[in-house]
């Protein structure tokens, strides 16, 4: 029996058994008024659901947005791949790196100015390819608990990546693991600082191996990292500057420095191929990159937005040209191998 016949047979059997349940419980799906937005929870959730922007979207367009939150970029893309043949979400936004790997698998449809007029207002670097735009981004920062620093009489960290290697930080570090986007960026950054690059990753791993025994935990999400920094079981880590700023705003005793060379981490967005609500998806993406929303993101969360009309960017878009560029194709091709090396050679060190 071929796969197709088996599949249709199973579909029949399964469908029959479900008929009873379906009769009573099939959820009445609102008729294409809802746009499903697959991305992080965190600050996006806060923006849409707590700070009232979801309602503003409804007022502006008549659609409602339903957030589908995942914890990490790879999880966002994995969730999108899982529904590739039968999409349930319309708009997807994640870190640039996993987004591009999703695009390689044919997840997204072309988007252009005709459908989404606001694309014309984006900086040229934001037009990544026909299927993907960059919405905003962040720079990576070293985050530290200043109360612990004062207590231990440590000097505040300088704006250099080499600071992570300071011997007194042993036993107080929390770094994201290499299977997360920020962990991956960290690996590349450490490689560069020590004379390598994404093409020659060895020095990055050497640095991680040196750091590993002094690391309290490798938290996979920023929420987790924040917990360790907050209760003082760790004192130093790195993540995005906007996450750090948000954490400080909540009253956690942390400060951050943005080390040179700057490492820019882009956020990309696109529309699912065969999205259930393509019109709503276009309307949402157009609204999401509009001057109003992006100005809010820049002012409230310190994002570096790609909308050229936004005047309150923490870093001018022009500075992006000087920032480190990453060869994303190489990184995506090597990622799986690097994770393997990390899990086997770095993670067990303590």
């Amino acid at each position: 029996m071929g796969p197709i016949r088996r599949s249709s047979f199973l579909r029949l059997a399964f469908g029959a058994a479900l008929a009873a349940a379906a009769a009573g419980g099939a959820a009445a799906q609102p008729a294409n008024k809802t746009v499903y937005f697959l991305t992080w929870g965190g600050t996006v959730q806060q923006t849409l659901e707590k700070e009232g922007w979801g309602k503003k979207f409804t007022e502006a367009t008549g659609y409602t947005v339903q957030l589908v939150p995942k914890a990490t970029g790879p999880e966002i893309i994995a969730a999108a791949v899982a529904q590739k043949d039968n999409p349930q979400v319309d708009v997807v936004q994640s870190d640039l790196l996993p987004f591009l790997s999703g695009d390689d698998q044919g997840l997204f449809r072309p988007i252009d100015v005709k459908d989404i007029p606001n694309i014309a207002k984006l900086a040229s670097v934001a037009r990544i390819n026909p299927n993907a735009i960059m919405t905003y981004g962040d720079v990576m920062a070293i985050i530290y608990n200043h109360e612990v620093f004062a207590q231990k009489k440590w000097a505040e960290p300088k704006a250099e990546w080499g600071e992570l290697m300071r011997p007194e930080f042993r036993g107080s570090l929390v770094l994201p693991p290499v299977n997360t986007t920020y962990g991956l960026y960290g690996l590349i950054t450490l490689a560069r600082v020590h004379g390598g690059s994404e093409h020659e990753i060895g020095p990055g791993f050497d640095a991680l191996k040196k750091l590993a025994p002094g690391i309290v935990e490798w938290p996979t999400t920023f929420a987790r990292m924040g917990q360790f920094l907050q209760d003082g079981s760790a004192a130093v880590g790195f993540y995005s500057s906007s996450s750090a700023a948000e954490m400080a705003r909540r009253g956690v005793p942390v400060k951050y420095v943005v080390p040179k060379p700057l490492f820019f981490t882009g956020t990309a967005a696109g529309i699912m191929k065969n999205a259930p609500n393509p019109e709503g998806a276009k309307a949402f993406l157009n609204w999401w990159i509009s001057k109003e929303v992006m100005t809010f993101r820049a002012e409230r969360y310190g994002n570096v937005t790609m909308n050229t009309e936004v005047t309150s960017n923490p870093i001018p878009i022009a500075a992006l040209n000087e920032m480190q560029r990453v060869d994303y194709a190489t990184v995506n091709a090597r990622r799986a191998d690097w994770i393997k090396v990390f899990e086997r050679e770095v993670l067990p060190l303590k």
């Binding site: 929870g41 965190g42 959730q45 806060q46 995942k70 914890a71 999400t221 929420a223």
Partner: peptide
């Protein structure tokens, strides 16, 4: 999902 991303 909420907790894996933000904790309040």
């Amino acid at each position: 999902n909420y907790v894996s991303d933000r904790i309040d």
